[in-house]
């Protein structure tokens, strides 16, 4: 049914990702397919790495840890963006095509009034991506 799962991760907020990670791991085991963890970072030093390479290596460690923990095959994919907060959604949609993922599993918040003005990331990705998108409510 699916061949590859993409899971966007925010390394700075791993504690909030539990549901989507669990869900993706379950699906990966069920279909026996790999999971690619995708992270977007800015060019300036941030909480998740002083340089883009350091960010990529943290993401690699994260992917390896998930593989060990859930017994699935994992990979990682790091993206540099000039303005990560704004470009996030477009970059994720592009990344899904680039890595050939046909299922995106991502964390999403419970909708609130602000979503009318600043649409949620999950909503935009679902609208734009060719892949199936599963937004896991936190």
């Amino acid at each position: 049914m699916f061949t590859k799962i993409m899971v966007p991760v925010d390394l700075a907020h791993q504690d909030k990702l539990t549901k989507s990670l669990e869900c993706a791991a379950e699906l990966a085991r069920h279909f026996d397919i790999p999971v690619v963890y995708v992270g977007v970072t800015g060019t300036a030093p941030g909480a998740t790495g002083h340089t883009p390479e350091e960010f990529a290596s943290h993401l690699a460690e994260f992917a390896a840890a998930q593989a060990e923990r859930s017994g699935i095959s994992t990979a990682h994919h790091a993206i540099i963006s000039h303005d990560p907060r704004v470009e996030l959604d477009a970059r994720l949609v592009h990344a899904a095509e680039e890595i050939g993922a046909d299922l995106i599993v991502m964390e999403g918040h419970v909708p609130n009034v602000l979503d009318h003005f600043l649409p949620s990331d999950g909503g935009i990705v679902a609208k734009l991506a060719k892949a199936t998108v599963m937004v896991v409510r936190n």
Binding site: P34, V36, V38, T51, P52, E53, A56, A60, A63, A64, A67, S73, T74, A75, H76, H77, A78, I79, I80, A95, E98, I99
Partner: peptide, 15 residues
Amino acid sequence: MSDVTTDQGIPEPEG
């Protein structure tokens, strides 16, 4: 195991 596709999004290592 970790099947690495490192740096796909990063054009080249930054040195």
